[in-house]
């Protein structure tokens, strides 16, 4: 039912892997006996353009196929999107919304930028972690690691097993190890109030 459903909205720029993350997470939770639905919003498909992704996770089959208007969790992969009213990162949010922001700035500064009252805000330097661990500024998987610090939909070890499964046939061991290290670090380095 709707009340048990976690609805996540991803805000990113084209090339940051939000589509992959939104869909991967939907797939990963199947191993936990949960149901997942993941989809991006398709518009102009170009690197750097603001884009949104959506993930629903539920204990029961997910039937609705509409956009997520009142997300429980908002994940922001590019902090510059908080400066753009057109990106709408706070649209449909309220005091119960949880924000996860990829940024090097402080919690206070981030909360101020978001301009939200009451909502829970967490930050993590996912791009820095990705650069260190994977060698590329792609913050998508580290943000899933960070997400698991605020929601127990699965454990970090379960996520890592799913990652190995997902990346296994396509990527080198170096990239896989980098991603595993990145999700682990982001999970530990999430900054919360």
């Amino acid at each position: 039912m709707a009340s048990q459903m976690v609805e996540i909205r991803w805000h990113a720029r084209g090339g940051q892997g939000a589509k992959t993350a939104a869909m991967f997470l939907a797939e990963a939770v199947l191993s936990k006996g949960k149901f997942g639905q993941g989809f991006p919003e398709y518009g102009p498909e170009r690197r750097g353009a603001p884009m949104r992704g959506f993930t629903r996770i539920s204990e029961t089959p997910i039937r609705r196929h509409c956009m997520i208007e009142r997300p429980g969790i908002v994940i922001i992969l590019d902090p510059s999107l908080m400066d753009s009213s057109a990106a709408g990162v706070t649209a449909g949010t309220d005091k119960d919304t949880v924000f996860l922001v990829n940024t090097t700035e402080s919690l206070d500064a981030t909360r101020k930028k978001l301009g939200v009252k009451g909502a829970t805000v967490h930050t993590v330097d996912a791009t820095g972690i990705a650069l260190d661990s994977i060698g590329r500024p792609i913050p998508n998987m580290p943000m899933i690691g960070a997400l698991l610090a605020v929601d127990d939909m699965m454990t970090i070890d379960e996520l890592k097993a799913e990652l190995v499964d997902k990346l296994g046939t396509k990527f080198s061991q170096v990239i896989i190890d980098g991603n595993l290290a990145a999700v682990e670090r982001a999970n530990k380095e999430l900054v919360s109030a």
Partner: peptide, 12 residues
């Protein structure tokens, strides 16, 4: 089947 809504959505 519906374009994007089904075709491009990861679904169980």
């Amino acid at each position: 089947y519906d374009g994007f809504i089904i075709s491009h959505t990861a679904d169980a």
